[in-house]
């Protein structure tokens, strides 16, 4: 299991990197943290002619919070989400869910942008980008595009990124006010891709009913999915665990992942609903001030 030959470039500026992408297009793969790409290379399931290693590109590894937005450079390592105080303060959901992304050794190299661009539907970060209504910033020599997460994932392990584009940042609106969050995942082993995972944000009205809800799922379809019908069903209701759970049945129809060696589709349907309702209930409890 050794990688095939490739032409290797490790530019230090974004301009150089974009130049290489403009020149080589689909023949060039971006090497970010390498936790998904390098296994594919080692198994020779991917054989790009050119690797554009963005690890030395200046300016992609920053993290800052300003004006209600948490902006993460695409090369921010995933472990930073776990460790960084700014992230924990701004988007505690992200900090808490990050420990489910592979294992710590993977997160030391794996990047936020790499995971999003790889777009594995069972991965946590794409799901989190959706639930947080993140915006993804793509650059090319043609300029900059800001893509809402809801438009970013367009098929199985596929995104709307163009061959000449590089993901440079993720902008996450910092949830304002008293927003509760929850994250639930079921995997065969700890650290595996999700059989089903759900992330939720909930705000409550003065009467304790759900004022707004955002719920997204991983592992259940070709892409991560927002459970919009479930969100709508929750709004205005009294979020008792029973209400939250019974409304979650609606999620079952979102599940399209076929049977595989780890789980059946029937199972994923049930468990998608369970993880969603548990995530929402956890979010409700946090919105009420519990932990």
């Amino acid at each position: 299991m050794k990688p095939p030959p490739f032409a290797y470039f490790d530019p230090t500026t974004l301009e150089e990197a974009l130049g290489l992408k403009a020149q080589h297009g689909l023949d060039a793969s971006v090497l970010a943290g390498g936790q998904s790409l390098v296994p594919l290379l080692n198994m020779r399931l991917a054989s790009p002619e050119v690797l554009v290693d963005t690890n030395r590109v200046d300016g992609l590894g920053g993290l800052r919070r300003s004006n209600g937005t948490l902006e993460l450079g695409s090369m921010v390592r995933q472990y930073v989400l776990e460790d960084d105080e700014v992230v924990a303060q701004a988007v505690p959901l992200l900090a808490a869910a990050a420990r489910h992304v592979g294992h710590r050794e993977n997160r030391h190299r794996g990047t936020v942008g790499g995971s999003l661009a790889h777009a594995d539907p069972a991965a946590e970060l794409p799901c989190l980008a959706l639930v947080l209504s993140a915006e993804l910033v793509a650059r090319s020599n043609r300029g900059e595009r800001v893509i809402p997460a809801s438009d970013f994932f367009d098929g199985f392990m596929s995104t709307v990124l163009q061959p000449d584009e590089i993901l440079t940042a993720v902008r996450i609106p910092v949830p304002a006010g008293n927003v509760g969050w929850g994250f639930e995942e079921v995997a065969r082993r700890f650290g595996d891709f999700a059989l089903a995972a759900a992330a939720a944000l909930v705000t409550l009205g003065d009467d304790g009913s759900v004022a707004s809800a955002s719920v997204a799922l991983a592992g259940v379809s070709d892409t991560p999915v927002r459970a919009t019908e479930y969100e709508q069903a929750l709004v205005g209701t009294d979020p008792t665990p029973d209400n939250v759970a019974s409304a979650a049945r609606i999620i079952e129809r979102l599940v399209t992942t076929s049977d595989d060696i780890h789980a059946t589709q029937v199972y994923r349907r049930k468990v998608a609903a369970v993880t969603a309702s548990r995530a929402v209930t956890a979010a409700v409890n946090r919105a009420r001030g519990g932990e």
Binding site: V38, E105, R109
Partner: peptide, 13 residues
């Protein structure tokens, strides 16, 4: 100082 999987990095990196 941080643990990484050396099979998923290239020596040049």
């Amino acid at each position: 100082g941080r643990s990484v999987r050396s099979c998923l990095m290239f020596a040049v990196q």
